[in-house]
């Protein structure tokens, strides 16, 4: 289990990295934390010809306030997010999620940008960013664009990124008043990829009716899966146990269409999805108070 050979570049600046990416395009793979890429290379399931190591680019690692929201450099380590007070205060859903991502040894290396750009359907952060209505900054030597997280994920391990483009920043908008959030996943063992997981955000209007709700699942499809019918059922209503049960059942039975694998059948995933949707919605509505 030794990786195949590759050409190695370790640019010190973003500009240099984008130039290399422009030069190598499809041939190159960006090395962020490497905690998903290197195991795949050790199994020789991935054999990139060129690796562009982003770990020396200091300018890509930051956690900054952006009004009442946050801007996160793509190379910010997951561990830094986990320990960040800014994140705890301004993106509590993200804060709550961090300990579920693998183990500290992995989070010490793994980065937020690497994780999102990898687009693993079983990964927590894409779903969480979706639920937070995050935006992604994609840069290339030619320029940059800003993409909503919801438009970024194209399929399993596939994103909207062009070969010469790099995810450089993640933007998390400010939380509205009367917002609530919750994250939960069920994994065979702590730190494993989840059998099913969900990130929930809700918002109440002044009358206490649900004004917005997002229920974003992972490990149930090709990428993050938003439960639209469940949201529709919630919006405009006064939250309560019966409503939550209805929404959870809609999410599990109608919104998602999970596959089975050796760890969980489709039916079992639906069952877990229903339980998780119910629990996270309950918790999220509690938190609006």
């Amino acid at each position: 289990m030794k990786p195949a050979a590759f050409d190695y570049h370790a640019p010190e600046s973003l500009e240099e990295a984008l130039a290399l990416l422009n030069e190598y395009g499809y041939e190159a793979k960006l090395l962020a934390g490497g905690q998903s890429l290197i195991p795949t290379m050790n199994f020789r399931l991935a054999r990139p010809a060129v690796l562009i190591d982003l770990n020396r680019i200091k300018e890509l690692s930051y956690i900054e306030k952006n009004g009442s929201g946050l801007r996160l450099g793509a190379m910010t380590r997951q561990r830094a997010l986990e320990r960040s007070e800014l994140v705890a205060n301004h993106a509590p859903l993200l804060h709550e999620t961090m300990p579920f991502i693998a183990h500290p040894q992995i989070r010490n290396r793994g980065t937020i940008g690497g994780n999102i750009a990898h687009a693993d359907p079983a990964s927590e952060l894409p779903a969480v960013m979706w639920a937070l209505d995050g935006y992604l900054k994609l840069q290339s030597a030619a320029g940059e664009r800003r993409v909503a997280v919801q438009d970024f994920f194209v399929g399993m391990f596939t994103t909207d990124l062009e070969p010469e483009e790099m995810l450089t920043e993640i933007e998390i908008p400010a939380m509205f008043p009367r917002s609530g959030w919750a994250f939960r996943e069920i994994a065979r063992r702590h730190g494993d990829y989840a059998l099913v997981g969900v990130a929930a955000t809700v918002r109440l209007d002044e009358a206490g009716r649900c004004e917005d709700a997002r229920l974003v699942f992972f490990s149930v499809g090709e990428g993050p899966v938003e439960a639209q019918l469940a949201s529709d059922a919630l919006i405009g209503e006064l939250p309560g146990d019966a409503l939550i049960e209805t929404a959870a059942a809609l999410a599990a039975e109608a919104d998602i269409d999970p596959d089975g694998d050796i760890h969980a059948s489709a039916d079992y995933r639906r069952q877990l999805a229903r339980v998780l949707a119910r629990d996270t919605l309950r918790r999220a509505f509690e938190r609006t108070k």
Partner: peptide, 11 residues
């Protein structure tokens, strides 16, 4: 067993 298998047996 596994949670998945237990689920099947219970169902």
């Amino acid at each position: 067993l596994s949670p998945q298998r237990l689920f099947e047996l219970v169902e």
